[in-house]
């Protein structure tokens, strides 16, 4: 498990750098396995405390069990939970049938934008991983976003050793990615190693299916699987060649490049 501890040490270092340099810092938490591991790493980094708010951009289409899990952990771990929502878009009945990219843009990208504007965060910690999809593979640990939240992937700042981009012009913000080097298997290995509570939607509960990646109910589909323990998930992942986000509809075509350029997670 040495490789997992190495990843943990790097992520903890990044989290502490973020906390040191950003006065107004928040961490996105979608209750999925990755951002929950991220939350756990924050508790590691700050010795049981989480000294910044956890932000949930609520699309209103999440699976109900996810909200219950969110509120339970928030209570038990004494988290400062901040929930944001694009109420205007929801009032105008935005949903995935109007187009997946449109729906993601309105409820997630713009929902996040609204939350950032309202609270004035200058640093946002996210649980994205480089192995999820190919634009995330090109991310920096500390990745600047301009005034419109846009990601200028053509001209990213150099990132040398453990020296990150921590200063930025007013009006812009930095996305911080402590999990970039983790793979999907590493996430599960760590959940097992640390015994981190996770949602049982990730397990087969008797019907031969489980979720491999969690998002909004209408756009996330379970996979065929009989894995009912973390060990079985790890075993299954080692044997598969199917992409993790195959069950996520917004990844079709160039969906993610377009979404992420405009400020998607």
């Amino acid at each position: 498990m040495r490789h997992i501890r190495q990843l943990e040490d790097q992520s903890v270092y990044i989290l502490r750098e973020a906390y040191k340099h950003f006065d107004n810092l928040g961490m996105l938490w979608s209750m999925g396995k990755d951002s929950t591991v991220l939350l756990w790493l924050a508790r590691k980094a700050f010795f049981g405390h989480v000294p910044f708010p956890l932000l949930h951009v609520d699309t209103s289409y999440k699976i109900p069990a996810m909200i219950e899990y969110r509120d339970r952990l928030a209570r038990e771990w004494r988290l400062n939970l901040v929930v944001g929502q694009n109420k205007k878009a929801l009032a105008e009945e935005m949903n995935h049938e109007r187009g997946r990219v449109e729906c993601c843009t309105a409820l997630k990208t713009n929902g996040l934008k609204l939350l950032l504007e309202e609270k004035g965060y200058t640093g946002i910690i996210l649980g994205v991983r480089a192995d999820e999809e190919s634009t995330r593979a090109k991310e920096r640990y500390f990745s600047p976003r301009d005034k419109n939240n846009d990601w200028d992937f053509r001209d990213q700042p150099p990132e040398l050793w453990d020296q990150f981009k921590t200063s930025f012009p007013p009006g812009t913000h930095i996305r911080i990615h402590p999990l970039l080097d983790w793979t999907e298997i590493n996430i599960w290995e760590y959940i097992k190693l640390e015994n981190i509570p996770f949602m049982d939607l990730y397990l087969d509960r008797g019907d031969g299916t489980r979720y491999r990646s969690l998002g909004c109910a209408p756009c996330t589909f379970p996979i065929k699987s009989t894995a009912s323990t973390v060990d079985e998930i790890i075993e299954e992942l080692r044997a598969t060649n199917v992409a993790e986000r195959a069950g996520r509809a917004q990844d079709e075509g160039r969906g993610m490049e377009v979404l992420r350029k405009d400020g998607y997670m």
Binding site: P158, E159, L160, Q163
Partner: peptide, 12 residues
């Protein structure tokens, strides 16, 4: 070490 010029890490 690195050198920072204004907002950016610009050399090592």
């Amino acid at each position: 070490f690195v050198l920072v010029d204004e907002y950016d890490v610009s050399g090592g």
